[in-house]
């Protein structure tokens, strides 16, 4: 059974139709990349998958693990194993990163019917994962994303993914605002999470990220539709020729 199945998805924001019939199937173990110019609907797609308010799905459906994803509230989707790595991670003043991670993990564990981890177990659990991503204890003590650099915020997103161990990770422009060293750390963190059971949807504007996270499939999203799909070589072509060829061809 596919992990994620998007069928003819149409969606609007206000009066504006942003998605105009998206079809996409992600099987367990696969990494898909969605590329596309600004304003093509990439972030909208990620928000609709995660269940953010303010988007109206007008047609189509999305199955997650065979279940109707769109009827689930956002927190239930997260508990069921859908993770969104945010392009702009949100600051929550006064809430220590550690506290946030623990609250989130225990919420997800409760959904799965597992007992909450106690303070000591949790500390070990987080430190193990934080080390790989070069996230220091100091960062874990600071308020969530408050005063974090761009790189720290993105590493923190990947840490949250590592802590929550989702079935499907949607990473929205995880590479934006990262220098090459930070990009490598983030990519390593993501690659460490690749397993035969887990699926990933990597949304990016640039091919650069895909040098480090090698996708199985690449899709070009423009004007609310997937205009072209292919293997990882498609990303290289786009890098060379830009989106103009594809979107232009569509217009003609």
């Amino acid at each position: 059974m596919p992990l994620l199945e998007i069928q003819n998805l149409h969606a609007t924001v206000g009066d504006k139709e942003i998605l105009k019939g998206i079809n996409l199937v992600i099987k367990p173990g696969q990494v898909h990349a969605i590329m596309g110019p600004n304003g093509s609907g990439k972030s909208t797609l990620s928000y609709i998958l995660a269940g953010r308010d303010g988007y109206d799905v007008t047609k189509g459906e999305v199955l997650f693990d065979g279940k109707d994803l769109l009827s689930m509230p956002a927190d239930e989707r997260a508990c069921a194993g859908l993770f969104l790595g945010f392009q702009y991670p949100v600051e929550i003043p006064g809430v220590a990163t550690m506290t946030f991670l623990k609250t989130a993990l225990n919420a997800v564990r409760a959904y799965r019917g597992d007992d909450p981890l106690d303070a000591m177990q949790f500390l070990n659990y987080v430190r193990e994962r934080a080390m790989v991503l070069n996230v220091t204890d100091d960062m874990l003590r600071r308020a969530l994303n408050v005063g974090f650099s761009g790189g720290e915020k993105k590493r923190n997103e990947i840490l949250q993914m590592a802590v929550l161990e989702p079935r499907l990770a949607v990473l929205d422009e995880t590479d934006s605002g990262l220098d090459i060293d930070a990009l490598k750390i983030v990519a390593e963190g993501v690659n460490a999470m690749r397993t035969p059971e887990r699926g990933m949807l990597v949304i990016t504007h640039y091919q650069r990220l895909l040098n480090y996270i090698e996708p199985d499939h690449v899709h070009v999203l423009a004007q609310g539709r997937i205009l072209q799909s292919g293997g990882k070589e498609l990303a290289l072509e786009l890098e060379k020729n830009g989106y103009g060829d594809i979107t232009g061809a569509e217009a003609a």
Binding site: A74, D75, A78, C79, F83, F100, A104, A107, Q160, L164
Partner: peptide, 17 residues
């Protein structure tokens, strides 16, 4: 939304914030 995306329900999210 950020909190909910990490698995907290609305009330838990408000309480945390």
């Amino acid at each position: 939304f950020y909190c909910q995306q990490r698995g907290l329900n609305e009330e838990e999210a408000v309480s945390l914030i």
